[in-house]
Simulated scan of single mutants.
Amino acid sequence: MTNVVQVTHAQIPAWRLRRQSLAPHTTAAPEELAERLAGVQAQVPSAAEPALATRRTEPAADAVWVARAARSVVGTWAMRGTPRLLPTAGGGEPGGWLDLAGGPRGPSGRGVGAQR
């Protein structure tokens, strides 16, 4: 038998805001947020900065650039051929995200070395 969960209309957006780390704000580092969000959309490189800033209690204007310099995040084409900011596995190496996305991708959305 399936259990049915009853929710109110007000609970639905509240749940979404919490799951997307929009409310309440967090002290999480950029790499933690990138992991929670399954990547931060960065089609325009500067777009990742406000996406992270809106989720943090103490936003820093250069958080993405600091995280990239520390190699705790990497910018790559991951899902659906869209540039994303993803957490690294440590040491600057891409984590399992690329495996989940089907391997390295280029701007066309095709795998690297894919035949046309």
Rank of each mutant, 00 (worst) to 15 (best):
M1R: 12
M1G: 10
A10T: 08
Q11L: 07
I12T: 12
P13H: 04
P13I: 06
W15I: 10
W15P: 00
R16Y: 12
S21M: 11
L22I: 12
L22V: 13
T26L: 03
T26S: 11
P30K: 01
E31T: 03
E32D: 13
E32N: 06
L33W: 03
L33M: 03
E35D: 11
E35S: 13
R36V: 10
L37C: 08
A38D: 09
Q41G: 04
A42M: 04
Q43H: 06
V44P: 00
V44C: 09
A48N: 00
E49N: 02
E49C: 06
L52M: 05
R55H: 04
R56C: 00
T57V: 15
A60T: 13
A63W: 03
W65E: 09
A67P: 02
A67R: 00
A69R: 13
A69Q: 13
R71V: 04
T76K: 00
M79G: 02
G81D: 00
P83R: 10
R84W: 13
A89M: 09
G90I: 14
G92R: 03
E93F: 15
P94Y: 03
G95P: 00
L100V: 10
A101P: 01
G102M: 02
P104S: 09
G106H: 03
G109Q: 04
G109K: 01
V112W: 12
A114W: 06
A114E: 12
